[in-house]
Write a protein that binds this DNA or RNA. Structure first.
Lengths: 257, 257
DNA sequence: CACAAAATGTTAGAAATATAACACTTGATG
DNA sequence: CATCAAGTGTTATATTTCTAACATTTTGTG
């Protein structure tokens, strides 16, 4: 991706940040380039924007994403996450202050936070913040710092302290690796502090991870599995874990989506 | 509108109620009719659904803020802001750590930060952060806190302290009101702390405000005009201010875009 | 400045979508 | 039962969008 291309994309993204679409011809005029260049920019955007009938739309705008509830086989990963989040949603109650972890796993959860509850979402992820900022009925607290594009999240020295000062009620944690003996891990070390602080501060800790994460180990450990109250997962892993002997208390409650 | 047509629409709207799009062919298969019939249903739906590139989308999802109006943005001094920012850009040098204020005025500035400089952008505005996060060559520090949708920015108790701890080099400040005697003001009180802290911390303070802001007074004062090193503006106001006597040192340097 | 590489613009053709016209089916009604 | 009208399907055509190829411009470098 070119620097000018990135500039144009940033401008167009700004224009689309509150939703809606822009026709190729408008975008081209706005940026002072040809429609073909905008097309190439969209390809270079690596999925942050897409074209739909000659109009630019933000890829993370669920209004314009393909509806997966029809052809369930199409994108199993996305669908799995959606089911996981539908399952996790059951824990959300009126008045909750939720910690929402970074990554894409929990995006369906925040995109569909119901309007009939009074909720506060605490996050250190830019994509989560953007989704929540579009929900006028949900209070948003973003924990800032230096931006890490790899995980679309922020990191700072005082992240743990900031989380402790907030009255976090329930923590929804995601992970890149979950191993029953070795614990729960993620890719980036700057995620460890906020994850740990949220796990320690929250009254209820909910780990949301699809079956592809199980048995996997990533560089940055941040918790043992028994530190969670609930694990929401799916597929064969979930079935296997949930069939453990009932007197086994080393594992949290397993929910299979 | 037909009763069968209404039933099909209800069914499709249900499928789309969580967001997403359905291709005409899928919708036709789902309802057991031809694509042409779905097209006619959409026309009969009186705007509740529209077609976009052969896909059905809900016309306006109330979950989202009203669709961005490109023309309104352009008419509302968009071109002036672009010129102002082109002018302000001249102050940016390699290695700078820039504070960028909230609002729409400075968006063209951050969208076009050149790739040949090593830059850090500090901001408390979500729209600014989004634009900068798309530029891989610019370091981004976001000052978090509670989100205020009115200004797309964050506010917190320790905002001023956090800014002081950063080595901010140049501050680009925007304003909703600029009055030569009464000072510079904005709409929202939570913006005062970060603006003031940035003005006090930065080596160079640049106020960017188009002519429509001059002579206007807004609820929250945050600075006197002489606290700035440069004022970038345009139009008649700029001409008038810049023609002041050269021995008048009560005003900063005026740049007319 | 010359050169190469990258980015952008232009054009033409392919594919998909939109529109219009007309034929067929269905169901209500006298 | 005949008839009509509304609804639907089919076909053809127009329009738009997409893709690929090539020409041109800009940018970076020695």
């Amino acid at each position: 991706m070119n620097s000018r291309s990135a500039m144009r994309l940033a401008r167009l993204q700004e224009a689309l940040s509150r939703g809606g679409t822009i026709h190729l011809s408008e975008a081209a005029r706005l940026c002072g380039v040809s429609e073909m260049t905008i097309r190439r920019d969209v390809v270079a955007s690596e999925g942050t924007m897409t074209l739909l009938g000659g109009r630019l739309v933000m890829a993370d705008n669920p209004q314009y994403a393909p509806a997966y509830n029809l052809d369930e086989q199409r994108d199993s990963h996305y669908l799995a996450k959606q089911r996981l989040c539908q399952c996790a949603e059951a824990f959300i109650e009126d008045g909750d202050t939720l910690f929402v972890d970074c990554g894409t796993t929990l995006m369906p959860l925040v995109s569909s936070l119901a309007g009939d509850k009074t909720l506060t979402v605490v996050t250190y992820a830019l994509n989560v913040a953007n989704a929540v900022s579009r929900l006028p009925h949900v209070r948003l607290v973003l924990l800032g710092g230096l931006y890490h594009s790899s995980s679309q999240s922020f990191g700072s020295d005082d992240m743990a302290g900031a989380i402790q000062r907030l009255g976090i009620n329930k923590a929804f944690i995601s992970a890149a690796g979950v191993h029953v003996e070795r614990g729960v891990s993620c890719f980036h070390f700057h995620e460890v502090a906020p994850k740990r602080a949220a796990i320690e501060a929250a009254g209820k800790r909910i780990l949301v991870a699809d079956d592809s994460k199980f048995g996997v180990i990533r560089p940055a450990y941040f918790a043992q599995l028994d530190e969670f109250d609930v694990v929401v997962t799916n597929g064969g892993v979930g079935e296997r874990l949930s069939r453990r002997p009932s007197d086994d208390t080393t594992l949290p409650r397993i929910m299979v989506a």
